[in-house]
Design a protein around this nucleic acid. Structure first.
Length: 573
RNA sequence: CGGUGAUUAGCGCAGCCUGGUAGCGCACUUGGUUUGGGUCCAAGGGGUCGCAAGUUCGAAUCUUGCAUCACCGACCA
């Protein structure tokens, strides 16, 4: 491709609303342009990368025995009413009506559609198992789209759905998908980890997420240093502290702490560590039917954080987890949020293991401007339950029993679930077994965020000059940069020949034939991240040489013109 | 959905307080200059100042409403 015939669209300045590096570089390198909040146009270079990721995903899915289909983006509401998600899905689901006022939606996912397909097309156990996938545009009306295509409203996703008669069979396909995902991320050349994950609102039993490791990642991933245990922090269990709780040595004492609302302020005033305090959070409670009812107090150590996923799984806590509002707090404890404590509450109190292990601790007195010191469980606070409701922290013992936990950031790029019968039951998808009995299908589902991978790859592979594409997904493999081409005949002759030769050898070559200064060319090619750069200048031409520069390593060397093709071939291996 | 802020040329911004001919840098066009790391000089094109209403002789500027966008938080298969 000649740059003069191409839409290069690089930017010198960084657009002000791009926060993360991948978003900035994708805009600057001319890969994407924003159309509206969370909606992006893919420009030629961006699309080339997107298609490469897509193709690798497709090849590995096919290799793993999955079969490609393509389902509509627009889906009829009645299917979602059948599965119950028309009601359950929040405002993230974009609902639309057609000209006949019939309700439809833009698909954020395709469980309903695939289950509808399978219940019609598959009727015998002989047709099982089957694993169907598509690469399709999804739409989720995110409350707050951000970070470019990393969290866009419209995005490209590969989603696969498998159907089985037995759990064992599902397990096999699940393992095959796990392996396929590892193959995909290996081929993409990204540093990634599969981690244990929460199944979230989708339900089901086993689930793994695949994370690309990057400091800018939105998820916290925990690792054991003594085993290969890895989990999303949402899922990682905090083990109860070892040994007996220390004995009480202090008496309960109420002290005045005016204008002291946060744990940090309390610690400052009392000259104590946050780990000797507890914080008490009020959340909306739930009755036996899971409907909103009253408020519940959740108590964690002052230096710990509430784990919302764990909390909303508790029976008497409303899901999704909702913090009590000011009116509810006033009604329940008659003080403001900064002064709540577990003493003498007439609402359910759920205490984290670590908080329940404290002796002589500090907490709010349920009276504005006062705290208790010297508190002790059972002696001062009687009615409470103990549960795991906090996030693990660096150095906690690993739940697998070996090693200590460390925490890294990750970008979720894949998620695989064993769904079970949640959708097949609601939508009556089953087959006749060998014995002629009707049996409900067991499902798995497997997603990969294709467009998100592009951003994640940049987060992990860039420097101050621009993108450093992994070989497998670079938009071009080689670029040919003639220095001051218009001033001589020799240079365009050599450049044109190299361009043609490399192209004929099957490489995607970007030939910068613009009448630009060298600096502009270098800067643009580094920004776009072309891995192999050939520079043709008068300087080396007398000796029949051109310069080669490797984008990844930054190494430069001169090579003979007639060796360029074989040299590049060598570099690609 | 709450809090904050923004909206002026393709991009980044100034002007607004104190109403009076709409500006700067980059980009773009033309000519020259320079030529192995984002040259320099000159000339030029491009804006119903987010939308609507109001105040005023006169509104980018003051008032009100609306819209869009962003950041923080909540939210999130």
């Amino acid at each position: 491709m000649r740059t003069t015939q191409y839409l290069l669209s690089t930017l010198k300045e960084t657009p002000s609303d791009a926060e993360v590096i991948s978003h900035q570089l994708m805009l600057r390198a001319g890969m994407i342009r924003k159309l509206a909040s969370g909606l992006y146009t893919w420009l030629p270079s961006g699309l080339k990368v997107l298609r490469k990721v897509e193709q690798i995903v497709r090849e590995e899915m096919n290799k793993a025995g999955a079969i490609e289909v393509l389902m509509p983006v627009v889906q009829p509401a009645d299917l979602w009413e059948e599965s119950g998600r028309w009601e359950k899905f929040g405002p993230e689901l974009l609902r639309i009506k057609d000209r006949h006022e019939r309700p439809f939606l833009l698909g954020p996912t395709h469980e309903e559609v695939i289950t509808e397909l399978v219940r019609k097309e598959i009727s015998s156990y002989k047709q099982l198992p089957v694993n169907l996938y598509q690469v399709q545009t999804k739409f989720r009306d995110e409350v707050r789209p951000r970070f470019g295509v990393m969290r866009a409203r419209e995005f490209l996703m590969k989603d696969a759905y498998s159907f089985h008669l037995t759990e064992d069979c599902l397990e096999k396909t699940y393992q095959a998908m796990h392996q396929a995902y590892c193959n995909i991320f290996d081929r993409l050349g990204l540093e990634y980890r599969p981690v244990l994950a929460d199944t979230g609102s989708i339900g089901g039993s086993t689930s793994h997420e695949f994370h690309v490791l990057a400091d800018s990642g939105e998820d916290a991933i925990v690792f054991s240093d003594g085993s290969d245990y890895a989990a999303n922090i949402e899922k990682a269990e905090a083990l109860p502290p070892q040994g007996e709780r220390p004995a009480a040595t202090q008496n309960q004492e109420k002290i005045a702490t005016p204008n002291t609302h946060s744990i940090a302020q309390v610690c400052e005033r009392l000259k104590i560590d946050a780990s000797q305090t507890v914080k008490t959070l009020l959340v909306v409670g739930a009755n036996a039917e899971g409907e909103e009812q009253g408020v519940v107090a959740l108590v964690v150590r002052g230096d710990h954080e509430l784990n919302e996923v764990k909390a909303e799984k508790l029976e008497n806590v409303f899901s999704p987890l909702t913090m009590a509002n000011e009116a509810q707090i006033q009604q329940a404890v008659n003080c403001s949020a900064g002064s709540i404590g577990p003493v003498d509450l007439n609402i359910p109190v759920i205490v984290d293991h670590s908080a329940a292990h404290l002796a002589d601790f500090v907490a709010g007195a349920n009276e504005d401007g006062f705290h208790f010191t010297g508190l002790n469980w059972d002696r001062d606070i009687s009615h409470y339950q103990v549960a795991d409701i906090r996030n693990v922290v660096e150095g906690d013992p690993s739940p697998c029993g070996t090693g200590k936990l460390s925490i890294k950031r990750g970008i979720e790029v894949g998620h695989i679930f064993q769904l079970g019968t949640k959708y097949s039951e609601a939508m009556k998808a089953g087959v006749l077994t060998e014995s002629g009995k009707h049996e409900t299908l067991t499902m798995g589902c497997y997603g990969i965020g294709v467009s998100r991978i592009v951003a994640a790859a940049i987060e992990q592979n860039h420097d101050k000059f621009g993108i450093k594409w992994p070989a497998a997904i670079a938009p071009f493999q080689v670029c040919v940069l003639p220095m001051n081409m218009h001033k001589s005949h020799r240079i365009p002759d050599v450049a044109n020949k190299l361009y043609t030769d490399l192209q004929q050898a099957g490489y995607e070559v970007l030939f910068d034939d613009r009448k630009e200064r060298p600096g502009v060319m270098f800067a643009d090619m580094e920004l776009i991240g072309v891995p192999h750069v050939i520079v043709i200048g008068e300087r080396n031409l007398d000796e029949g040489l051109v310069e080669y520069k490797n984008r990844q390593t930054g190494e430069k060397q001169t090579i003979k013109i007639e060796d360029v093709l074989s040299f590049i071939q060598q570099q690609m291996v």
